[in-house]
Design a protein around this nucleic acid. Sequence first.
DNA 1: GAAAGATATTAGGGTATCCTAACAATCATA
DNA 2: TATGATTGTTAGGATACCCTAATATCTTTC
Lengths: 217, 217
Amino acid sequence: MSAIKEDYIKVMFELGGKSRTVGNKAVAERLDIAPPTVTEMMHSLVSAGWVEYTKYKGAILTDSGTKYAKHIIRKHRLWEVFLVEKLGFPIDEVHKEAELLEHVTGDKVAEKLEAYLDSPRFCPHGGAIRFDEMDRQEAELIALDEVPVGSTVKISRIVDEEKLLSFFKNQQCDIGDVIIIKDIDTQIGLMTTFNMTKNQELQLSISLSKYLFVEYN
Amino acid sequence: MSAIKEDYIKVMFELGGKSRTVGNKAVAERLDIAPPTVTEMMHSLVSAGWVEYTKYKGAILTDSGTKYAKHIIRKHRLWEVFLVEKLGFPIDEVHKEAELLEHVTGDKVAEKLEAYLDSPRFCPHGGAIRFDEMDRQEAELIALDEVPVGSTVKISRIVDEEKLLSFFKNQQCDIGDVIIIKDIDTQIGLMTTFNMTKNQELQLSISLSKYLFVEYN
DNA sequence: GAAAGATATTAGGGTATCCTAACAATCATA
DNA sequence: TATGATTGTTAGGATACCCTAATATCTTTC
């Protein structure tokens, strides 16, 4: 399995999990690759047994594809913990490095790394490391742009992308913070919230709020 | 620079340093690749400025090629230290993993890793990590098969190859051991030594003794 | 339900890395 | 120094992954 194919199924997992069908366009955009290349690769992923594919419709991960994707994401997140906690990297710089390391990490290395890090449950921006916890997050966490006005929610995960991480860091908006949604203005596309943890107001573009996953009861 | 090209110049460094010309056959064997592929790749390495190449004669690393090779080897050895000392891997299992990690390790990661490991001078099988120390080893260490009978030498480096490492481990022959060369029988190809550190005799095929580098005054 | 717009596929190519078979240069040694 | 053995190159081809341009299908909207 090449690093590139691993990237494809990882993106598919992030985009649709094992439940929703993912269009080629979305995959192409995420990987910054031309659409015909995705069509081509899908056939190869079907042969490998990682996805099911319907012409003109899109693809969905098989069970083994889903499992494989989770294994890679686990390795990614373990490295992020290592880079932040042991090597002292700032949280918004580790994604790119983990992106490379994840593809060359044997299972034994991952296991020993996990033990060495004291079996962390989450990566630095809140992504689950254990499979059951990944499932729980998938089921329970909701994107901030789907939460109604008035709710109190806990920020649990920030989508792992360098620019986003540095943006939210600059906004003093961190994993674990509890915020109240005061107002949502769909007209101008702005959400106004109050960060209880930091005791300060936080205004956020709605288009960016979908990258924040929150716990909402 | 692809991981594959990095492998080529790393092998060239190990085979000839910056001083000797290396034949394509040797490179091909080390990388387990057909000779014509090596010829082809040499042209590409010339274009990139890493090697000088003379048709039918062989190749030699340029200054920048040498520097590049050292950077990769440094990363390789840092990971080996990490895998052994932090993750608890047995010494003969880390080569393969480091072989992969070395190609995806940014300079910043390498620096922070080095600091985290307390700036180790040597990897688990004796290879130098600092550039000046690499040069010193290159200049001062000598392969065991070139040492005369009667000498007392200290084992300083074992060539980094999984099977060799497990072999020497099984022979209870480790980095730092001091041994006396009692006899060399070129007829049957056997060298008889006494390991002072372990206080026991050690017999060794001469053909394998060239993979042991020793300090010899 | 038909046209417009969005999305996906096919066709035809490109590069990097690898191969085998056939041929050429070099080396070693009688 | 000639010749066989060794080593290296050329020729021709394969695969994986990527592209653009042209075409096909699907979706949305009037």
